[in-house]
Amino acid sequence: MEEIHSWHNGDFHLTTDQSKFNLDDIFQYLTKSTWAKGIDKRTVVGSIEASLCFGLFYKDIQIGFARFITDHFTFGYLCDVYVVDEWKEKKLGSWMMSCCHKHPSIQKLRRIILVTSTAGWLYEKHNYTPVNEPDYIWQIFRPKIYHNE
């Protein structure tokens, strides 16, 4: 079992303790998001169980989330990052990213990647840089995999 890590900032806290996560709230947010629209709950739960995840809370209410798919030694893929709309003005996304990058597993990774079309400004503040080399990152992308079409 992996060691639990937590960070505190007044009434806000971030934790890797998955027993504290509100899976229904995470699912509801992700299924309506632009990147995971239509995702099913079983997929959300399975992806959380298989990843290093961070839950952002105001007191006991979950207001944000971030997930790293990682081997904990060399590589990590950051995804499913959000702060619910009502809390976005508090700069909690930036605080959450700072804390995530303090996690011992994340600190030793050689490469961390992410994909975003809307929040590059946030990740740039945390030392992410765009990959502009031609033919450098390759993918299989199935944007309608969660749709029953």
Rank of each mutant, 00 (worst) to 15 (best):
D25L: 10
K88L: 10
Y136Q: 12
T70M: 06
E149V: 11
D85Y: 08
T70G: 00
S33M: 10
E2V: 11
S6K: 10
F21C: 03
F68V: 09
V83T: 08
Q28N: 14
F75Y: 14
I106M: 06
I63E: 01
L78S: 05
C79K: 01
D80K: 04
F73D: 11
T31I: 05
M96H: 06
G64V: 05
T70V: 11
M97E: 05
C79T: 10
Q28P: 00
F57H: 04
I137S: 06
T116E: 10
I113P: 00
L56M: 11
E149N: 14
A36E: 01
W35M: 07
C53K: 07
K108A: 09
L78Y: 05
M96C: 12
F75V: 06
L23W: 02
S6E: 12
Y29P: 01
D17F: 06
Y58Q: 09
F141S: 07
L122G: 04
D60Q: 15
H147D: 15
K90R: 11
P130W: 10
T43C: 03
H5K: 15
Q18I: 15
P134W: 00
C79W: 02
K37V: 13
E149I: 07
L114M: 09
A66N: 05
W35F: 12
A50T: 14
F75S: 03
I63H: 02
Q18C: 13
V45I: 13
E2Q: 12
K90G: 00
I63A: 03
M96W: 02
P104L: 07
Y82R: 10
K108Q: 15
G10K: 07
D60R: 13
N127F: 14
L122F: 11
H147S: 15
Y29I: 02
I26A: 03
Y136T: 07
D25H: 09
G46F: 00
T15V: 07
S98G: 14
I140Y: 15
Y136K: 11
T34N: 10
M96Y: 01
Q139W: 12
H126W: 12
H72F: 14
L23F: 12
K102P: 01
N148I: 11
F73L: 13
F73S: 15
H13M: 02
F27C: 02
S105L: 02
Q28H: 07
D85Q: 14
N127W: 13
V83K: 00
I4L: 08
L114S: 05
F21S: 06
W121H: 15
F12D: 02
K144D: 14
L56V: 08
K91I: 00
D11Y: 07
A66G: 15
T70W: 04
C53P: 06
I26T: 05
N9W: 03
F141M: 04
F65C: 00
E86M: 06
Q107H: 10
D24S: 05
K102M: 14
V84T: 13
R110E: 14
T16M: 08
P104G: 06
L122Q: 09
V44T: 10
S33N: 08
C100L: 08
D25E: 11
F65R: 00
W87K: 12
H126I: 10
R42I: 08
D25V: 04
G76W: 09
D71Y: 11
Q107G: 09
V45M: 04
Y128W: 11
I48W: 01
I140P: 00
Y29M: 05
L92W: 08
V115C: 12
P143R: 07
C53M: 02
I137W: 03
W35P: 03
Y77M: 10
